[in-house]
Nucleic acid binder design. Structure first.
Lengths: 140, 140
DNA sequence: TATAGCAAGTTACTAAAAGAAACCGATATA
DNA sequence: TATATCGGTTTCTTTTAGTAACTTGCTATA
């Protein structure tokens, strides 16, 4: 299994970005001063990622549909994450007062914008997951 | 604060990627069948992300340096994450049996490859963190 | 008139994970 | 002899996650 070699140029570009991103951060400052961290904490949460990915694949999903698709999530956590993701603007919640009740979740434009970036990460993970598995095996 | 509009073409492209990624996944299968999920679980963990970013910015870091830079991490968790990230092949650990002992951590090529993708996500988070904050405020 | 059922959660309880702080071993310095 | 260094580990407490039963409002069926 081959991996594209990373050139020094690419590394330098990453270093410049990181400098822009972290250069001003004083290590003595408490973490709440870093809003990136705060945003990443929710948006990079394991369950949030899966919720967003499934809402990318299925444009509209209801609570129990999500519960089935996001395999292994509990109702409690799903409910919590949906609330947070809605508050942060990643998805919308629409309630239809029918019987039985119907609630539809879908990504906002903002959520779609995040999904695009997220996809690049999951594509990477897809591509190299086997490699990670073999790396692990080597260590056992 | 403006956000680039996402075109239908872009959405479609994302949908195609998602289909490739999730289309074969049977929702009845237990989650361990999805290796992407497994890889993402570690690589998208809050502390792992910060460790990788700091090792991107500072090419070599020792245990206590990391502890200081990754603000708020406990020694226990840092130790655990470093072990896992080493096992998965993201970083290397080099021990110098001096006194006091010296241990150097640095990203592997594989780790650098991941860092590149991760950067795109954190750049996004940097760009839109204010927006998330205002979204939250609207909901309070 | 019970009664059973559904969707979308919530609640109460238990298990797992994270965080805080003390400790360790080898050695050098005061 | 006492203290400090480094890279952790151990123990204990607090937070978070997971499980399963329950709720709410209405409706279709017996």
């Amino acid at each position: 299994m081959e991996m594209e070699t990373i050139t020094d140029t690419q590394r330098l570009r990453v270093a410049v970005k990181l400098k822009k991103m972290f250069g001003h951060v004083n290590p003595k400052d408490p973490p709440e001063i870093c809003p990136i961290r705060d945003v990443m904490a929710l948006a990079s949460d394991k369950w949030s990622i899966l919720i967003i990915l499934y809402l990318g694949y299925f444009p509209v999903l209801r609570f129990n549909e999500l519960k089935r698709k996001v395999y292994g999530i509990s109702g409690k956590i799903l409910s919590e994450r949906l609330k947070s993701l809605e508050v942060d603007g990643y998805l919308s919640r629409e309630l239809f007062p029918e019987v039985p009740i119907r609630v539809e979740y879908r990504l906002t434009d903002f959520g779609h914008s995040y999904l695009q970036k997220l996809m690049e990460l999951t594509e990477w993970a897809e591509k190299y997951s086997n490699r990670v598995i073999t790396n692990r095996a080597k260590h056992s």
